[in-house]
């Protein structure tokens, strides 16, 4: 047997075409988000198995029909796992079709969540998700609300959303996206949220970790994607969230309506459709408006980008205003000003 496992660079157009053809034959849609691809070639340099990575995930795995049962998938997954460890990722996630999920169970992966008929989301450690759920701080009673935000940066709109949830429910679980995805560092976003929700005693702040709107569950939040892909990612993210909700006694998720960002609007649409099926209500709160303008973090970033932070002072709580006026924020402000497009697509 002289099969060869080889890295396939984006520039190798012939091999990339073979990857496309193999995926299509096996009924797998090629993901737009890929940063590493490998393949196994036979003696005549025909591609017989392939797999790819994006950040800490493994995806787009396929083995040619006539070579199934030869252990090729094991070689591809072994190789991609090594690639992930070289990147420093020991916690690896994987997507696959529901009917293939059991093969990955044999390769040390365990299921986190699935969207029936479409995709199964897995991780390379047993009980990783269960341990995450156990580690989340619980509220003393059920019937809680949940809010998920990026708070990039924290505005009065975020404050209004949390206040609304906190007024209607005994406790609010507030999940803050912990992935670094913009010029404002996570530690700063977190501090501004903490300061911004001061006085609301029934709010529990959690870091979202890898399981809520991360580049593992929802890559199109961070990178442009097609509508179909966004919907598929959103459905998966919401399937994971439903389990978190069940573990924490969350009955309602509050979201702000989304007039500007396409990806968030699609996400909300899928959420409004899917969440009730998981036993969680989804309440969409109209955006806060001040002085006739809709409050939005992207408007704030745009104003900072344009060098006119004062024009959005009425959208921000005192803590966020103070931060952006401080010396500490100077490099962050510089980074925002240097961005081509400070608004989310």
């Amino acid at each position: 047997m002289a099969d060869t496992l080889s890295t396939i660079s984006p520039r190798e157009t012939r091999a990339q075409r073979q990857v496309d053809a193999l995926l299509e034959r096996e009924g797998i849609r090629r993901d737009a988000h890929i940063d590493y691809t490998c393949g196994i070639f036979d003696d005549d340099w025909r591609l017989i198995a392939t797999g790819s990575c994006y950040k800490n995930t493994i995806r787009c795995l396929a083995v040619s029909g006539e070579h199934q049962g030869e252990g090729l998938l094991n070689r591809v997954v072994s190789h991609l796992t090594q690639v992930q460890f070289e990147r420093g990722n020991s916690h690896v996630f994987l997507y696959t079709k529901p009917k293939s999920a059991r093969f990955f169970g044999d390769l040390g992966f365990s299921e986190i969540a699935r969207v029936e008929g479409r995709v199964v989301f897995m991780e390379n450690r047993r009980g990783g998700f269960a341990a995450y759920l156990r580690a989340l701080e619980r509220a003393p009673q059920d019937g809680c609300a949940a809010v998920v935000m990026n708070a990039n940066p924290f505005t009065l709109g975020h404050r209004r959303l949390v206040e609304t949830a906190a007024a209607r429910h005994p406790f609010v679980h507030l999940f803050l996206l912990s992935e670094e995805a913009g010029p404002i560092p996570f530690a700063v976003r977190r501090r501004l949220v903490q300061e911004g929700i001061a006085g609301l005693d029934n709010v529990l702040l959690h870091d979202s970790g890898p399981y809520i709107i991360s580049s593992a569950t929802f890559p199109s939040y961070f990178l442009k994607g097609e509508d179909d892909a966004i919907r598929a990612h959103a459905a998966l993210d919401i399937a994971v969230f439903a389990q978190i909700a069940a573990a924490l006694g969350i009955t309602t998720r509050f979201v702000g309506d989304e007039p500007t960002s396409r990806v968030t609007a699609l996400y909300n649409e899928v959420m409004a459709r899917d969440l009730p099926a998981h036993g969680v209500d989804c309440i969409i709160i109209p955006r806060l408006a001040v002085n006739g303008r809709t409050v939005s973090a992207s408007t704030v970033r745009q104003a900072i980008h344009d060098g006119a932070p004062d024009s959005v002072a009425d959208m921000l709580p005192e803590s966020t205003r103070r931060y952006f006026a401080s010396a500490e924020a100077k490099p962050v402000v510089r980074a925002i000003r240097a961005m081509d497009d400070p608004k989310h697509y």
Partner: peptide
């Protein structure tokens, strides 16, 4: 630090 050795082959 995290490390891996070996493969999933038979």
């Amino acid at each position: 630090k995290p490390a891996v050795a070996g493969t999933l082959e038979s």
